[in-house]
Design a protein around this nucleic acid. Structure first.
Lengths: 99, 99
DNA sequence: CGTGTAAGGAATTCTGACACG
DNA sequence: CGTGTAAGGAATTCTGACACG
């Protein structure tokens, strides 16, 4: 029940840096390139989730493989696109079965 | 695999305060009374886990019921004591079965 | 006993920019 | 393009203490 801890945005950039091995500079840059989307505290401080930790580790690996940020973003977008289509497909199937 | 997110100490006291509804003063005081055990960053800043969030909410409830910090600590100690005994009992049983 | 608060300082984080390449 | 760094400022956190009760 509830969003489960994994998606709660509660991690500061300092700890995020420790957990991923990335520099704060890199983490902020990947945000600029639309690869991660932290929340902000009232004061403007960044807050990440454990899901973001996984995402950043993933990004770090792709960067090591020589991939560029815009390619990674394209790939991510494709993923959620596929998920959207699958979801729509399932809803559709369920709807048909209803009648 | 790994300690799972629940026990990773990654939450600052500010967010902890938001998540539990307790003031930072209260959270620090419960630490002084040995009810929570945050880790510290190099700089000395406190870091909590989601398990700590649950623990603090639990403590908050007991405080509302008029319980005092030392009673809560006693209760907690009894709990881990029971767990220890059960664990020892199981190890013992397993050992006997071996021979 | 449990908690609020003002106080002074230290640690953390933020943004925009220059640098290299 | 991706990342390091120095710069100045703002937000966050820390401790010890006084207050009330």
């Amino acid at each position: 029940m509830s969003l489960d801890y994994k998606d709660k945005k509660v991690i500061g950039i300092g700890i995020m840096s420790e957990l991923t091995g990335l520099s704060e500079r890199q983490i902020r840059y990947y945000e600029e390139r639309k690869l991660v989307f932290p929340e902000r505290s009232k004061g403007g401080t960044r807050k990440y989730s454990f899901a973001d930790v996984e995402r950043l580790v993933d990004i770090a690996n792709k960067m090591e493989d020589g991939m560029q940020t815009f390619e990674i973003r394209k790939q991510e977008m494709k993923k959620s696109d596929v998920r959207d289509k699958m979801l729509r497909g399932q809803l559709n199937a369920a709807f048909k079965m209803r009648k």
